[in-house]
Nucleic acid binder design. Structure first.
Lengths: 243, 243
DNA sequence: AGACTTTTAAATGTCAGACAAATAAAATCG
DNA sequence: CGATTTTATTTGTCTGACATTTAAAAGTCT
């Protein structure tokens, strides 16, 4: 692991990259202890604050965790699905909100991915997941629900659908796609009529999942995509030419 | 933005979280300049190194960028697809390699996601993407290719397929799934016979994409998934009971 | 006045040294 | 032998300083 003190990039970034490479390549295995900050600063010929900045960069990516005290130090972290979820969601959310990705593009991606889960979910969904979906449908039907709460419930419903596939890797990959849509969905005003339409589609999906009818789930998700895009389109239309 | 100096968590982590929230919530917009390190340390009542550690955490997530010199400072970064890609890939790779996700689980997720792209890709693939796929197929047929190079070319082929959907959000989401499989795939020994089988499937996929025949693409991806899992199964079998 | 050069100021990057706090292991004592 | 105290190690934080980069201000010459 070497760094070049002449390069224009920050030393702390170079050191972080060197350690990151060692972790990704498997040179440093899970739970391995890194040298102490003092040793690292000796090894890289930099000061301790610089080493610390590098370590904090890695900690921000959940690549390492630190422990104080004797026999403490920085350890290669076994990254868990929970950590990965939250990172993915933050990144995806910012990506969508800051890069002016069109609603249609995001929506298309989301439903394409969800439909990928449909066959597996129809096959494997647990009673618990079905119950979650029914509960969210019930919540969505409550009168006086704010648009934000409606969206949040919608996200919960779809997460249950995705989790139904029983594949943690799929759940992880889709968490970003589904959750990141929420801010975009929040811009939509859901009328009583549109809520009813969405709820009906949700009921159809839940019923089809219970009946293990993958084809209907797929078709209904396609309908839901079309309906959602239509709603967004109407909102955009109304905004452009307000009554 | 407030922090609690009594909490057992690191101050730099708290400060990073406070700023992160401000960015995610939209309180700090893209290209907005954060207060200088000196001002932040005043504001949070901590020292400058502590503030710097917090800023480095955010920089590691591409949430901010820093610029030196007068009128420099830390700016809210517009996160690009490139940044998001690489972060996703590192996270996904580590997640798969460190969490002992079974090959079957990862493989199932990957092909489910790829099949989600198939219809869109059949519809929109550009001549350029078709050419990339043909070129990779050609490379895969070269004799004397190492297993690693074969896998790398396989990844390139599948990325072209995914990019064919013409949806950057899909490409971003799938980059992790496809690339993260590479280390797992590298554990497989590809015989001349198995390479030929895979290449034939790749040809079928490329042909079907060119003919905009989504159904064949989907079916062939399903075949490829079955074949890949069979290969991995054989390798595992042979390792358990070596001849 | 205008274009070029020099100076200055502000900001991040880096360093050195110190102390605080946590923690596990070693040493001590009943 | 068990409980307690001491000690050493390591991260967390602070202070203060200097180096480097960069843009803007000041100055200078034509």
């Amino acid at each position: 692991m070497k760094i070049d003190s002449q390069k224009p990039t920050d030393l702390s970034a170079q050191i972080a990259q060197a350690i990151r490479s060692a972790i990704v390549s498997g040179e440093l295995i899970v739970n391995a202890r890194l040298p102490s900050e003092a040793e690292l600063s000796e090894q890289f010929q930099v000061s301790r604050p610089t080493v610390r900045e590098a370590l904090k960069r890695l900690a921000a990516q959940s690549l390492i965790r630190t422990q104080r005290g004797a026999s403490g130090g920085a350890f290669v972290n076994r990254i868990g699905f929970e950590d990965a979820y939250s990172q993915q969601i933050t990144t995806s959310t910012l990506l969508l909100s800051m890069n002016s990705v069109s609603f249609d593009t995001a929506c298309e991606a989301r439903y394409a991915l969800e439909r990928a889960c449909a066959p597996l979910s129809a096959q494997r969904r647990t009673p618990d997941q079905l119950a979650t979906m029914r509960a969210e449908i019930f919540r969505q039907a409550q009168p006086g629900l704010t648009d934000e709460a409606f969206c949040a419930s919608d996200v919960a419903f779809h997460r249950a659908l995705v989790d139904g596939a029983g594949n943690p890797v799929l759940s992880y990959q889709l968490a970003g796609a589904v959750e990141a849509m929420q801010p975009l969905m929040n811009m939509i005003t859901f009328t009583a009529r549109s809520r009813e339409a969405i709820i009906n589609l949700h009921v159809t999906i839940a019923d089809a999942l219970e009946a293990q009818d993958a084809a209907t789930v797929d078709a209904t998700l396609a309908d839901l995509e079309i309906y959602t895009r239509q709603l967004a389109h109407d909102v955009a239309e109304r905004k452009r030419k307000p009554a």
